[in-house]
Amino acid sequence: MSRLPASKVTKGDELPAKQVRVTRDRLVRYAGASLDFNPIHWNEKFAAEVGLPGVIAHGMLTMALANELVSDWVGDPGAIVETTTKFTRPVPVPNDGEGALLEITGKVTEVSEDGTAKVAITVAFEGQTVLGRPTAIVRLG
């Protein structure tokens, strides 16, 4: 496992894009792993009562998936020294085994002399972004 060297990174580089399918069983698994048991992520009736379109994905799960794109690219998850996002749009996850398909892309927007690079990420569901300005700063090798 080696970290992507700074010599191989240029402003404007695009990270390999990926699609991730988020299903109900994944929400249950994430709830258990993160200890976030808010019922809006698993209880249809509760979600409807608080005015949501149905059970929605944890924003923090979507943030985690966005960061995985960067981890895979840089080759070392410990290279991510800062990560930030706004949560702008909920991702409804129907109970149909198909779930919600997220499209995740990333682009290098800055390479600094201190050996870090800034990556702007996008996460889209049905053609609309669901996170606001998700960004990761990575320390390159």
Partner: peptide, 17 residues
């Protein structure tokens, strides 16, 4: 084991986890 459980939940494949 908690790290492994969390990595599995978010689809983090790195062996470093």
């Amino acid at each position: 084991e908690k790290i492994r459980e969390f990595a599995d939940a978010v689809g983090a494949a790195s062996p470093l986890h």
